[in-house]
Nucleic acid binder design. Structure first.
Lengths: 332, 332
DNA sequence: CTGAAAGCGCTTACAG
DNA sequence: CTGAAAGCGCTTACAG
C-alpha cells in the first residue's frame, strides 16, 4: 500500500496525498478528509526510505561510544537515546572500544547511510578526532563531542570541567584536615589528564606537596584500585586519603584497604568520581563527584538537533561537576 | 558523486558500475579495473538509502530493551550490537522502559523504516507481546525474543532456564547445611515468576518448608533488598539464608544486614543472580548465578540473521545458568 | 487548491 | 560481457 494506491482510491493525485500526509496547509478541507479516510482505512505507513532518498535525511543519529557496559557511558547513551526518541530521531549505537580502527569502520558504514548527525561520547574521541582520515569522514556530518574539542566546521562540544571536579575532592579532603593525599589516575585519555591537572593544581593551591610521587597510574578498573593500594603499601607510603579518577578504582582501593584490615575512612579516606551506582554499593558508600552525564547527554542532543535542523537555538557552556558526600571520607 | 558520474567517467553503463560495486562475477576483468580506478579516484560511497529502497532492506536491526542502564541489559545490548556490527548490520537501540505504550511508539516508527529485524530483550516482552496491536506490528518483522515465547510466524526465542538457575542457589545452600531459606522475589515479570517457581520446586525437592512465608516480594533494586531484610527482622524470622532474584537486591540485603551488625555470611548467607559487576563489588563478594547474557546475545543475533537471510542455519536450545561461588555463603 | 512530471540513486530483469 | 529501461515510493518545484 503506497501513495499511488491511496491516491487512486481517494481520486486525487499523489501530490495531494503527500500534502495530507505531511500536514501541509494548502489542501481543501473536504479533500483532506477524503484522503485521510482512505489513509486510515488501509492503516497506511509512509515508507521512510523513499522519503529519506529525496530529503537526504533519515531522522537517525549515530552515537559512537566506547563501551555501553560501563555505567557512565550507559547513562549517557541512555539519556541521549531517550531525548532523541522524544524528538522523533532514532539512535544507532556503536561500541568502538575507543579504538581508531573500529571508529573508522563504523564511520565508513555510517557514511553510506543518510545519518543526520553523530554524537561522540568519551574523551578518547579527542585523540581519535585528530586522525586525518577520521576527520575527513567526520566533516561530512554534523558532530557533537561530549567532553572535548574537535575543531571542525559543523561541530559543537559539551565540556565538563573535570579539572574543577577533581578539585572539589581535594578541597573536601583538605577541609577535613587531610594533607597527605595521593591520586589514582585512570589511564591516559583527555579527561584523565584534565583530572590529573586538576589534582595537581588543587594540591598546590592548598600549599601541599605534589610531585611524581603523589600521582599513581592505575588501570581503569576495580583491579586497578587494588593494585594502586598494593603499591602504596609496598612503598610504605603514609597517606591519609586517596583521590580516585573513577568509582571503579575507588571501589578497588576500598576493597583492598579493607581486606588488609585498614579501615575506610577511619584510617584512610577515599573519594571516587562519576557518582555511579558503584559508589552507592561500595561499603562504605563513596564520597564521589557527580559529573552530570544526563545533563551532558541532554545538551549533546540539543546541540546536534540545532546543527541538523539549523535552528541556531543552541546553548552551551561548561558543566560544573558537584561533590556528593558519602561515608568514605573522615575528618582528621 | 553517484553511480551515473562514475559510469560516465569510466565510459560504461550504470549497470556495469553497479555490478562492479556489488562484486558480481559477470564483468570483464579489464572493464572492472577501469571502473574500480574511477571508484577509487573519487572515493565513491554507495548511497545506502537508494539501495534500501529497491532491496527493501537496510541492514539494520532494532534492539528493544527495557533500560540499558541496568548492567544486565547493557551487557546483552552490547554483545548484540557488536555481533551485528561484525556481520555488517547496524543496531538501533530503544529503551522502552518495559512499557506497552513506549514499545508501541517505537514499533510505530520502526515500521516506517526498512528495519530488517527486531530483537526483544527482557522477559517483559512476553507480556507486551500478548497485546493485539503489538502483535500486529511485530508480525511484519522477523523477531527474536531473549527469554520468552512469542508464538508468531517469523520469530524465534532464546530461552534461559531461570528455574534451574535459582535451583542452583538453593542446592548450593542446602549442600552447605541451610534449611531455613527465603526468597526475595523481584517483581512480577516472566522470568521473575520462573525463578520463584524454581525456588519453590527446589525447596520441595529438598523436603524443606516452602509456602507464602518463604517468598518475599521486593522492589527490583538495592533499596528492595534493604526493605526485604527490614521486613524479615520486623517479623522476627529466623532464616539462615536469603536467595535473591538479582544482584541489586542481594547487595541491598547484604548492606542492610551488615549495617544492623548481622554478619554475612557468618550469620546469614545471601545469594544473588546475574553475575554482574555488583556481585564482585559487594562486600563480601556475592555467590551468584551467571545467566550468560553474552551467550544469549550471540544466539539472538544468530537467529535474527538466519531469519533475515533465510539461511535456516539456526541452532537453539535452552541456556543453562551456572553458579559462581563468592564469599556470601557460609557452611553451617 | 491541485496535479503532471522530474528526480532522489540505486538494482534488476530482460535483451542482445 | 554489457546496456537501456523500468521501478523502488516518496517530495517538490512549477504550472495552472
Amino acid at each position: 500500500m503506497n501513495i499511488y494506491d491511496i491516491a487512486r482510491e481517494a481520486g486525487v493525485s499523489i501530490t495531494t496525498v503527500s500534502r495530507v500526509i505531511n500536514h501541509r496547509e494548502q489542501v481543501n478541507a473536504v479533500t483532506r478528509e477524503r484522503v485521510e479516510k482512505v489513509l486510515k482505512a488501509h492503516n497506511y505507513k509512509p515508507n521512510a526510505t523513499a522519503r529519506n532518498l529525496v530529503t537526504k535525511s533519515s531522522r537517525t543519529v549515530a552515537v559512537l561510544t566506547i563501551d555501553i557496559r560501563e555505567p557512565h557511558y550507559a547513562r549517557t547513551a541512555y539519556t541521549i537515546e531517550r531525548e532523541l526518541s522524544h524528538r522523533g530521531y532514532e539512535a544507532i549505537i556503536c561500541n568502538t572500544g575507543g579504538e581508531l580502527k573500529e571508529t573508522e569502520r563504523y564511520l565508513q558504514s555510517l557514511m553510506e547511510k543518510d545519518v543526520d548527525g553523530i554524537i561522540l561520547v568519551g574523551s578518547v574521541f579527542n585523540e581519535i578526532g585528530k586522525d586525518a582520515r577520521i576527520r575527513d569522514m567526520l566533516k561530512t556530518f554534523p558532530v557533537v563531542l561530549a567532553n572535548g574539542r574537535l575543531d571542525l566546521e559543523r561541530s559543537y562540544s559539551v565540556l565538563v570541567d573535570d579539572q574543577y571536579g577533581i578539585g572539589l575532592s581535594v578541597d573536601h579532603l583538605v577541609e577535613n584536615g587531610h594533607r597527605e593525599i595521593c591520586y589514582f589516575m585512570d589511564l591516559d585519555t583527555g579527561s584523565a589528564r584534565e583530572k590529573k591537572t586538576g589534582f595537581i593544581q588543587s594540591m598546590k593551591k592548598h600549599g601541599l606537596e605534589c610531585g611524581q610521587k603523589q600521582v599513581i597510574k592505575v588501570a581503569h578498573s576495580v583491579e586497578g584500585g587494588r593494585v594502586g593500594v598494593q603499591q602504596l603499601i609496598e612503598e610504605n607510603r603514609q597517606v591519609t586519603a586517596i583521590v580516585c579518577g573513577n568509582d571503579e578504582i575507588a571501589v578497588g582501593a576500598v576493597k583492598e584497604l579493607t581486606s588488609r584490615g585498614i579501615k575506610v575512612p577511619e584510617q584512610i579516606s577515599v573519594t571516587g568520581y562519576n557518582h555511579s551506582e558503584y559508589a552507592r554499593i561500595c561499603q562504605p558508600e563513596l564520597t564521589t563527584i557527580d559529573n552530570k552525564p544526563e545533563l551532558v547527554a541532554m545538551l549533546c542532543v540539543q546541540l546536534i538537533i540545532s546543527l541538523i535542523e539549523k535552528t541556531d537555538s543552541y546553548s552551551s557552556g561548561v558543566i560544573r561537576p558537584e561533590l556528593v558526600p558519602g561515608k568514605s571520607v573522615a575528618q582528621l
